[in-house]
Amino acid sequence: MNIKSLIKPYHQLVIDTRRDLHRIPELSSHEEKTSAYVIDYLKRENLPFTADIAGHGVMAVLDTGRPGPTLMLRADMDALPIAEQTGLSFASQHPGVMHACGHDAHTAMVLVAVTALKALKDQLCGTIKFIFQPAEEGPGGAKPMIEAGVMDNPRVDFALGCHIWPDIPEGTIGIRSGPLLAAASGFRIIIKGRGGHAAKPHLCVDALETGCQVVGALQRIVSRKMDPLAPTVITIGHFQAGTAFNVIPETATIGGTARTFDMDTWQRWPQLIEPVVKGVCDAMGAGYTFTFRKGCPPTVNDPGMARRLRDIAAAVVGPDRVIEPNQTLGGEDMAFYLQKAKGCFFCLGAGNDVDGGLHNPCFNFDETILASGVEVYCRAAIDLLA
């Protein structure tokens, strides 16, 4: 069967579907319109589905009627709290919310894979589960979807997912064996001091100054307690304190993330971070509260699946266009599915000069690459379920 010929009629469909979804971005755990769009598409395809899983998650099932393994194709649906600045004709219709991480494209590719794989049903054995997951950006929708049973009855044997990837050239497919993305955790610190007049610091406990020292001390965890050959990062992305130029603030709020590929470090982050916070606060006479969210583990591709997917990708874009992407300290809750089944999370190259890059208000890419993602899914289904 000529898979490229089968996919060709769907090239415009995947672009149109992505644009429909791009217009209606929704924040994590609020994917009502997106979920409804997915459901309408599945209804048109006359494919059985279950909705409202772990919030707004959806699972559709293609049963070939013949015994065989189960393949899962996963897409994430949520968007980011970013005001879009692309100027696109199909830009976000929801002020302050944007699909700036490609989740609209991920959902479009899996939806169109539904259409294509229905046409291939007679060539396949076993079952395909199409997973449309909420809340990837936070607090994480994969684990609740798994707890709701999406990987059971029948048990998922193989799991695939895809991410638009600006870090590799446009038109390439990136596949890496083993760890690809890091374990990503988050934390929140509230410094509690004693406020007062800016002219009388000796009568106060300056929460802002204490917070600044906490931020500096946290950076030394990486520079002095971690193996410099093991990628690790602590980043502070939020610091809020004070209401006026002449008032010493009573409280300061700090939010950050800790990233690593090392499973032991992932487990020990609270024991590494909190003593530093306590030490600084004790020295400054301040109190604190510390909240830690463990987040997702590293995203680790099964070596055997990665090898199979490289051969599949070579048939899609050519052997010279299949590359090994660098590891990144970004996080992905696809990691939870890959702990439960043999799988691979692959990268669809969007080009190093893609507008803005991920999580940027100008993010956009050449949509013609999306057909390659659909074709990988179809060829993978044939390879694994034929």
Rank of each mutant, 00 (worst) to 15 (best):
D152E: 15
N153M: 05
R155W: 00
R155D: 02
V156L: 03
D157Q: 11
D157C: 05
F158K: 09
A159I: 02
A159L: 01
G161V: 02
C162E: 13
C162S: 10
C162N: 13
H163L: 05
H163K: 08
H163W: 05
I164E: 02
I164C: 09
W165S: 07
W165L: 01
D167W: 03
D167H: 09
P169T: 01
P169W: 02
P169M: 02
E170P: 00
E170T: 03
G171D: 06
G171K: 07
G171P: 10
T172V: 00
T172E: 12
T172S: 12
I173Y: 10
I173N: 09
I173H: 10
I175P: 11
S177E: 15
G178L: 08
G178A: 08
P179N: 03
L180R: 01
A183E: 01
S185D: 02
R188N: 12
I189S: 03
I189L: 09
I190N: 13
K192F: 00
G193H: 07
G193F: 06
G195K: 09
G195D: 06
G196E: 06
A198K: 08
A199L: 08
A199S: 15
K200D: 06
K200Y: 15
K200L: 14
P201A: 08
H202P: 00
H202N: 14
H202M: 06
L203D: 13
L203Y: 12
V205S: 03
V205R: 15
D206L: 08
A207H: 07
L208F: 14
L208E: 05
L208A: 14
E209Q: 14
E209Y: 14
C212Q: 13
C212P: 00
C212H: 10
Q213A: 06
V214P: 07
V214E: 07
V215P: 03
G216Q: 14
A217P: 02
A217S: 15
A217F: 04
Q219G: 10
I221Q: 11
V222H: 13
S223D: 05
K225L: 10
M226V: 13
P228Y: 11
P228C: 10
P228I: 11
A230E: 15
P231W: 04
T232Y: 06
I234D: 07
I234L: 14
I236S: 06
I236P: 06
G237I: 11
G237W: 11
H238K: 14
F239G: 03
